[in-house]
């Protein structure tokens, strides 16, 4: 009996050593960590999939999550302005905070001193890089390296999972690229300035934004300007994150007949979107169907 007890104790101890506790700032990172860490990590997230990741209220319950974590992964580039308050509030002096933007080829890095007159311009560049699936591979590699550093003995396991993920996403990138090829060179209106990485990857063009400046609410005069652009360029689609209000895009739709396509840009952003691949599938399929 005693031997069984000690054996169970040893097994549970070894299991607990293997279990890396991770918190992800967004659900996209959450899914990538699950892809690489699988059963060797326990992972939770902060910003819900149906929530604007720029504006997350600093809740003590998030501090509790970080308090018990070994690693906190975030997008970085100033997207999660709220995260430092959570880190401080967690009082976790062993927490490793890792920005996944380190190896990303950053776009729209301002070559001027950005201030609020430009809207919510991120001084380190546009942080919505996860909408390019090639960048998801870079994020996954960064996650693999961090998990391996945390648990050396599981490095091979994480590497196998990374290779498996890269294999699957490479296939999907080919599929998505083929699907989007018919739209190459076409112009779109986007709601928020978050689509530059996606647009560059699939060769589509940006004709304008519903927001007059990043983060600034749509205005009637700007809408009037967009009506002119939509009519003159024959633009067929407005693409927007599903957590934004669609009242201004719907007005544009009534005035011009343009289609409003609301898509999730995070995992769990809508029903049946439970992984990064499902999210990208949904975005691309909706664009194809409505353009």
């Amino acid at each position: 009996m005693k031997k069984i007890f000690f054996a169970l104790l040893l097994i549970s101890a070894s299991l607990s050593f293997a279990n890396i506790k991770v918190v992800a700032s967004t659900t996209v990172i959450y899914d990538l960590v699950k892809e690489i860490g699988k059963d060797k990590v326990s992972v939770d997230f902060i910003a819900r999939g149906d929530q604007d990741p720029h504006f997350v209220e600093v809740l003590p319950s998030y501090m509790v999550k970080l308090r018990n974590a070994d690693i906190f992964f975030r997008i970085g580039m100033g997207l999660e302005m709220w995260s430092n308050q959570l880190i401080d509030g967690s009082r976790n002096s062993h927490l490793k905070t890792i920005d996944l933007a380190t190896d990303i080829d950053k776009k729209e890095v301002p070559n001027f001193k950005p201030d609020a007159s430009y809207g919510d311009v991120h001084p380190f560049g546009n942080p919505h890089y996860w909408l390019d699936p090639q960048n998801a591979k870079i994020m996954a590699k960064e996650i693999y390296e961090a998990l391996s550093a945390e648990s050396n003995q599981d490095e091979a396991y994480f590497k196998k999972n990374l290779d498996d993920f890269n294999y699957r996403i490479d296939k999907k990138i080919n599929e998505w690229t083929n699907k989007m090829s018919s739209l190459k060179g076409k112009s779109f209106i986007f709601f928020h300035a978050s689509w530059i990485y996606f647009a560059d990857r699939f060769g589509i063009k940006t004709a304008g934004f519903v927001e007059p400046k990043p983060g600034i609410a749509p205005s009637p005069s700007h809408n009037a300007e967009l009506v002119g652009i939509i009519k003159s360029k024959g633009i067929k689609t407005i693409l927007m994150e599903n957590f934004y209000s669609d009242s201004a895009p719907n007005q544009l739709s009534q005035l011009t007949g343009i289609k409003v396509v609301k898509v999730p840009t995070a995992v769990f952003g809508m029903k049946n979107i439970n992984s990064y691949i499902e999210m990208m599938d949904n975005i691309i399929n909706q664009i194809i169907q409505n353009s």
């Binding site: 209220e57 600093v58 809740l59 003590p60 302005m81 709220w82 308050q85 509030g89 609020a116």
Partner: peptide, 10 residues
Amino acid sequence: SLGPHKAHPF
């Protein structure tokens, strides 16, 4: 409110 003064926690 001018500048990066942070929002108060809940």
